[in-house]
Amino acid sequence: MRAAVYHGPEDIRVEDVEDPELDSPRGAVVRVTHTAVCGSDLWFYRGRSDRDAPSPVGHEPMGIVEEVGEKVRSVEPGDRVFAPFVISCGSCEYCRKGLHTSCVNGDSWGGDNGGAQGELVRCPHADGTLVRVPDRHADDEDTLEALLPLTDVMGTGHHAAVNAGVEAGSTCAVVGDGAVGLCGVLAARRLGAERIIAVGHHEDRLEIAEEFGATDLVTERGEEAIERVNEMTKGGVNHVLECVGATSAMETATGVCRPGGTVGYVGVPHGMGDGLDLHEFFGNNISLRGGVAPVRAYADELMADVLQGTLDPSPVFTKTVDLDGVPEGYAAMDDREAVKVLVKP
């Protein structure tokens, strides 16, 4: 098969690799029809995180089941499925409590399972990982593109909103205007927030935030952003979604959080410990909740809203490429020319 492979910083190549083959009675092989480039992929693309080279890339697959093991019960060949960015067994202690990202039998996409930015993937735990799309929606392209963000960014934005304690009638701030931050805005609106303040720096992205339900847009940075939000809200907000992962973003999040409030953080940490002052949390009794999002725990409820037409995160895809265009997709996201790239192998 053909797949995107990492060969080093800024070096993604689409090349021939071995087909992943079924090797477990609980596994499945899926032919990928839709996938994406994620903002977290840019860390290794920019050389700012370690990754083996060469190695297949991608972690947001959707496709058609081609083969299943004899013990698989939830899907069968021909089914349309999508998969969260972490593989989970669905039956261990942590999966049962909805923390699939801590699955004791868990795995990541990549290695010899094919990655997800390629033609095929192997899932070793089909029942615990794959989410089946009802047949009546399996070929509706608009619906499929709205479902694809549930593999990562929509579930992650939802995790931020849930952990920040967003509820009906609340006021919240979302720090970050990447795909996760934009989905955080959408999640906050879904949970009933009355006022949603989007903090970002890119006009085109903030336009999407407004489309998704942001009531206020803040384009200032650093201390100026903190002052602006606090002025608008007369002292800050009780619910903050941190969707970047940088120390500066966390400082903004704590700076706009009212004493006794909560920061829900989902930004992949990058230098988060470098100079981050915990005094703000301690002195103002600010709670910090979040982490890597167990998107499998949210997939079914979010899919139900997509299928009934009340949730559509697909506008985060601002560029579409085929498999050969994956290197171009990485470059576009790295250059801030795309919010998130949709890949149709």
Rank of each mutant, 00 (worst) to 15 (best):
P124K: 08
A293P: 12
G63F: 15
G245M: 13
V321N: 14
E207H: 08
R205C: 04
G291I: 12
S170N: 06
G27K: 04
Y45A: 00
C123I: 15
V306A: 10
V229M: 01
R73F: 13
P61L: 03
L182Q: 05
C95K: 13
G192A: 02
G261P: 14
T171C: 13
E66V: 10
I12F: 01
L144Y: 06
D322V: 04
C95L: 09
L302Y: 12
V14N: 12
V153H: 04
L150G: 08
T219P: 11
L302D: 09
L302Q: 11
V321C: 06
V57M: 11
H100S: 09
A168F: 12
L42Y: 09
R96N: 05
D23F: 03
G260A: 13
L120S: 13
Y6L: 09
G110N: 04
M272E: 08
P61V: 02
G98I: 00
D16H: 10
E18Y: 02
R2F: 08
S91G: 07
I208G: 05
G329K: 00
P315E: 11
D216A: 14
T310G: 03
M232D: 05
C183R: 05
Y298T: 02
T233C: 02
H59Y: 00
V341T: 10
V266S: 10
D52Y: 10
G267P: 04
N163R: 09
G222F: 14
K319V: 04
R2D: 05
A161E: 15
A173N: 05
A126M: 13
R195G: 05
E119S: 06
L120R: 15
V339E: 13
D16R: 15
G291L: 07
M333D: 09
L342K: 13
E15M: 06
A28N: 00
G63H: 11
D135Q: 12
G98P: 01
R31S: 02
I286D: 12
R96L: 08
T247H: 12
M232C: 06
G283Q: 11
G128H: 07
T247Y: 11
W109A: 01
E67A: 14
E194S: 10
G128P: 08
E301I: 07
G235K: 04
V32R: 01
Q308I: 07
Y330V: 02
S170L: 08
E141C: 10
V268I: 13
Y94W: 10
S108M: 14
M232Y: 04
F44V: 00
E21I: 14
R51I: 14
L323W: 03
V37W: 00
G118H: 09
V133H: 04
N284I: 05
C172G: 03
S55Y: 08
I196S: 01
H202V: 11
C172M: 00
L342A: 10
E210M: 06
V29N: 02
L186F: 09
R73V: 14
P327F: 04
F282V: 14
V153M: 11
V263L: 06
R80E: 13
D216I: 14
L150P: 05
C123Q: 09
A116S: 08
D300R: 01
G309R: 02
G98C: 00
N105L: 13
V17Q: 03
E251V: 02
V174Y: 02
G325Q: 05
I197Q: 00
V14D: 13
V180H: 04
C38W: 00
I197D: 00
E280P: 05
V17F: 02
H125A: 02
G8H: 08
N113R: 08
V75C: 07
P9G: 02
M232S: 04
G235L: 06
G8W: 04
